[in-house]
Design a protein around this nucleic acid. Sequence first.
DNA 1: GCACAAACTGATATCGCTAACATCACGGTG
DNA 2: CACCGTGATGTTAGCGATATCAGTTTGTGC
Lengths: 323, 323
Amino acid sequence: MYDVARLAGVSHQTVSRVINNHGNVRDATRERVLEAMAQLDYRPNALARGLASRRSRTIGVLCFDTRLYGPGSTLHAIERHARAQGYSVTITNVDDLGREPIRRAIESFADRSVDGLIVIAPHDSAAIAVRAAPSGVPTVAVEASIDDTVATVSVNQISGAAMATEHLLERGYQRIWHLAGPADWPEAQERVEGWRKALTQAGLPAVGLLRGDWSPASGLELASQLIGNADAVFVANDQMALGVLRALAKAGIDVPNEMGVVGFDDIPEAGYFMPALTTIRQDFDEVGRRGLQTLMGMIDGKPPDAELQQRVEPTLVVRETTR
Amino acid sequence: MYDVARLAGVSHQTVSRVINNHGNVRDATRERVLEAMAQLDYRPNALARGLASRRSRTIGVLCFDTRLYGPGSTLHAIERHARAQGYSVTITNVDDLGREPIRRAIESFADRSVDGLIVIAPHDSAAIAVRAAPSGVPTVAVEASIDDTVATVSVNQISGAAMATEHLLERGYQRIWHLAGPADWPEAQERVEGWRKALTQAGLPAVGLLRGDWSPASGLELASQLIGNADAVFVANDQMALGVLRALAKAGIDVPNEMGVVGFDDIPEAGYFMPALTTIRQDFDEVGRRGLQTLMGMIDGKPPDAELQQRVEPTLVVRETTR
DNA sequence: GCACAAACTGATATCGCTAACATCACGGTG
DNA sequence: CACCGTGATGTTAGCGATATCAGTTTGTGC
């Protein structure tokens, strides 16, 4: 920086002003500085800027296994939008959902002076850990249902689940079971709630709740319990639905005529299952975008929005597993 | 830090020595310092440490869409192992594969003083960009076939493709076609090469090369050309294979008896396709692990390994799409 | 032509740490 | 007993930028 200043015949402080677009620099001066910067191929050191300005222009993303479709897509969206705003993204995956590892991860972000934190928190323990976060760093949770103390952006699971169930009802299915995710995942719980609500509203009893673990294997295994008892099933994610389809095919049950199936997520493969899966699409990109936008607002010290808990509406994608 | 020093009755430099485990601190002194740190809940500022020591303990990962299964898994492995060694991970996705955006991304990493860089570079343009990288930062490419100037860790695509093709030959298929990925992806090219090699070795002509774009849609579309011409197909990834399976089912062709199918990747869903997909498993975790290990060696100034180009061997997973 | 505010520019102190060298006590050596 | 090496600690400079305030031009109104 001092070299640039010398070459341009100004002080280093003027160079700093040019870099940061602080006003009050004469055009001619700015030109000279920019030229000197180009000539010396000068690039400001982000660490030093962060240290002096107390803004690192970095955000942290805490995730639980980005290999999963939802979190991976959300992360991708966050990174893309963050970069567009000049922020870089540091990630940490927490494999152990215990409280202590999460606390450590958040502290480690704070040590690195991130300006903000996004937690992709599809699990209860994450919610607890975020609330307990000691960091003082602006934080937004996505794909989570956290209490009112934390800003949140998530897909409306309840309406998605209700949408799925209502679709099955419309198509004339009566005994609609639900293959749910693990009980300690808020989104699993909300999907159960949406399913229950839709059935109750239709005057039907919400019996027939199965618990899987999100894996195709669990769908495969639990599907046997549907046969003879249900004529449709709303499955809490597409992967389990794949397992269910396979089990039904093996059992010689005709989908969609003998059994309707609706999934959740709309993973890229869903349209090519056999039969192609009717499912609920979650707009993870939108979740990531809104999450980042909210965080940026908090970083810039805007008053928290009226809407602390933002919901993105999912959409129904009808394919071949419902008649 | 000065507060800690005062409380412990030592100089700040001694506190620094304790933090960094530099020897030459009496046990009693170290104890006092640690206690003071605990009492004040002191946490060193990573930015300042990086600035002063010229080591940020951060690595950058440059990726091309982490939503894909391979890159996502590799990233996950890299992050996990990096964290275990006290490094944090900053990511950038490059959507535009042009040379300029990649150069910018690499420069941006350099500006942030990353100690090392891992490029998940499944595409030709990435290879070019990495070679042109001006950064002076230790760099490792993974999932790439870069020339000899850059350290690389990748799955051996050629042997994987040969393995797939030989498996089909063993099972008695004769007219074995290949549905390849885009020509500007090195791994697509290497899979073509492996397929060709295996057929040539068996004294068969390598005719029947189709080009898809990795998507299930392209598999679905191109599968029609197989019918009547091939009795087996080696598909360059599992997603296209899904499309192929769907097309074959629609056409009433029996898999595996009338047509054998082998995929590549072993995505989590592959075992639940209908029929379950025989495929080649890539150990992305191992790729990530070795990539990080190599990078750490370079950062610590070890002489570059004899093996600049490391290869991880894939494995064949036999399921139901081959008889 | 002059006062005075506004627009520029510069000097110095910091940000929170590590590097490098200086200092000091202590015990062993010839 | 002077001398020296060694381990433990302290002192002083940076790392590469921004913040703050002071100083110097410049422009404007009368």
